[in-house]
């Protein structure tokens, strides 16, 4: 079998490609997050254009309340910090501490989602009421979807970093690092969203 020979060769020979394989997954993830960020950028651009060229009549304008979204911003910023702590604990091989921080992080994420739901239910406008209502729900909804996904992934990491028996350990930090990167990204997007949607 000619097709097999290189494989046999490989196990005996030490070539730079096979022996030391750098881990490029975080690099790939970063590229993916750039792409994801561009989706948000498209939405933001659309929203800002609407604001500039399709103004609502003054009586249709609804000023968004700030307290809840401000709380949300704080929740997410804290959760970024707690996630960071979880990562540090894992590197120090303190599985229990790491798990505790992860749990706190996902709880913060959950709190964010609940408070977002509360906001949705108290708002006087629905998805199809007008252009701004639609854009508002599209943007916050798309972001909320990201938070939901992130919170779920954090719970998976939490389960996988249990000791003993978990797969996420000091020697395999990639899953945690990946979700952490993603989580910081989602938080960063929220800050931009908060400024553009609520403050501008």
């Amino acid at each position: 079998m000619t097709a097999l020979s290189p494989l046999e060769q490989k196990s005996t020979e030490e070539s730079p490609q096979t022996e030391h394989h750098e881990d490029h997954r975080l690099f790939g993830l970063t590229a993916f997050l750039v792409a994801d960020g561009m989706t948000f950028a498209g939405f933001f651009a659309a929203y800002l254009t609407y604001k500039a060229v399709n103004p609502l009549s003054p009586d249709a304008i609804y000023e968004l309340e700030l307290p809840l979204p401000t709380l949300n911003t704080i929740l997410l910023l804290i959760s970024s910090a707690t996630f960071h702590r979880a990562g540090q604990s894992l590197k120090r091989n303190e599985a229990n501490t790491c798990q505790r921080w992860l749990l706190i992080t996902s709880a913060l994420g959950l709190a964010f989602l609940i408070s977002q739901m509360v906001e949705y239910f108290t708002l006087p406008f629905g998805l199809t009421d007008n252009l701004y209502a639609s854009t508002f729900y599209a943007l916050t909804g798309f972001h909320g979807l990201h938070v939901t996904l992130g919170a779920l992934m954090i719970l998976i990491i939490w389960w996988q970093s249990r000791s003993p028996g978990g797969r996420v350990t000091k020697d395999n930090t990639f899953p945690l690092e990946a979700v952490e990167l993603y989580w910081h990204f989602v938080d960063g997007i929220w800050v931009v969203l908060f400024i553009i949607l609520y403050l501008l």
Partner: peptide, 12 residues
């Protein structure tokens, strides 16, 4: 039936 791109619903 949102109106992002639908002029009859105020879209652009």
């Amino acid at each position: 039936h949102t109106g992002f791109f639908n002029p009859t619903l105020g879209g652009n």
